Amino acid sequence: MISDHVTLGSSSSYLLNQNGQPNLAADIGLANRTPRLLPDQIWDIAGIELLLERTDLAPLLTMADDQPTPLIEIRVQKEMFPSLFANPFETRTHSLAGSEDFRRGKFQNCFDTNVNGVPTIVSRGSDRCVWTSAIYQAPLDLSFAAASWELASSRLIDAAQFEYNIKLNIWHNAQTDRPPDATLMLANHTDADDARSVPIASQDATGVRAFQLVFAAEVRAEAAFSETHQIDTPAAKASIGTPLLRGIRLVQNVENHLCYHSLAEMIQAASFYQMLPLAGGFQQLMLMLDTSAVLVGRPSADDASSDDYEFFEVTVHDPRFQRVQARLVVNERLILRDAREA
């Protein structure tokens, strides 16, 4: 079944304030976001049109010397990794994956090989196995906000076939020839089908200058996984264990580059803008920002107040605006499914 893309009309494409009105300046400091999309509903956002009004906008052209909060902030929340929602414009991801990263570390009762073309850590038989990564140093302080990891999913691997834990060792300076300053447990006695993303709220995860990851698994039974050799011997046909880990990602918070501290910043970022001048200044500024995002609907969480969904939002921080309107340039797609598959 194929459905056309439809450009949303004005009534559906405006962001509304807490009272359901289009003037976002009425809600200073409050986020005004798109509605929660339904499953199989997709919004393809190509940009945002803004109308800014004030008796005289000229004083807002430059950034204040005391660097206050931004005039306007745009945020996009995406499901960056399974069950991990974050703003891709204010995060940096550090990925440890692939043969090069794996082989920089140390293996105990496991090794790395390609499984279905993807470098994977595989156990040697059924026993405890541990992979300890190299220690990675950063040139500046890092602050980790979340972690996500990918296991070697397979219909041949039962969820209870192994359990694992993941530790993050942290140093707050470059001297790593000593025990870590802190160790955070990212996963503890976790089965293969449990959550694979976690937030990191510990204060120890700020000011990080070096880190190391440790993955340990207790394999209860071997999987139907083997290597093929040219020599036909019993040893060559023996099972060599269970595919386990494909990679671990650490998500770092960075400054949102869609925070605008002056109108000059917004004009520079705009693909189109128009000023409406008055004597001694100008009162209105219309501009188009090509901030794109694809929002995908998903089933609602049990908690109605949960933020675990994808959205686009605008927050007006400066009370000097008299009116701010935001209209999304957005196409909507619907996925229609066979009722027998629902």
Rank of each mutant, 00 (worst) to 15 (best):
K106P: 00
Q137T: 09
E150W: 11
A147R: 07
P139F: 11
S95D: 11
A160T: 09
G98R: 05
G117E: 09
S95N: 13
R124D: 04
R155I: 15
I157M: 09
K106I: 11
K106G: 01
S143R: 15
T120Q: 02
F144Q: 05
A138I: 03
Q161A: 12
Q161F: 04
S133F: 02
C110D: 01
S133I: 04
S123Q: 10
L168A: 08
F144E: 08
D112M: 04
A160M: 12
F162N: 05
I121R: 01
S99E: 12
Y164F: 15
F102R: 02
E163H: 14
V118T: 14
A97M: 05
N114K: 14
A160V: 08
C110P: 00
A138N: 09
I157K: 11
I166H: 06
A147K: 10
D101T: 00
A97W: 02
V130H: 01
F162M: 07
L168N: 02
S133V: 02
I135Q: 04
A145P: 00
V118L: 14
A97R: 08
S133L: 06
I166M: 08
F162Y: 15
C129Q: 12
R128P: 00
A134R: 03
A160E: 11
S95A: 13
I135L: 06
C129K: 06
V130L: 12
E150D: 12
R104A: 14
C110K: 02
R124H: 07
F102Q: 02
S99R: 11
C129I: 11
E100V: 09
L140K: 15
Y136T: 13
S143P: 00
I121T: 02
R124S: 10
A160L: 13
S154Y: 10
N165G: 15
N116T: 10
C129H: 05
D158G: 14
L140T: 10
R104F: 08
P139N: 15
Y164Q: 03
D112Q: 11
Q137S: 07
Y164N: 04
N169C: 12
D112T: 05
S154M: 09
L168V: 04
A146I: 12
D127I: 10
T120W: 06
Q137E: 05
R128Q: 08
F144K: 10
G105Q: 08
F162S: 09
V130Y: 00
F111K: 05
F111N: 04
E163N: 14
C110Y: 04
Q137F: 00
A97D: 05
I157R: 12
A152Q: 10
F107S: 01
S123G: 08
D141A: 15
L168C: 09
R103Y: 06
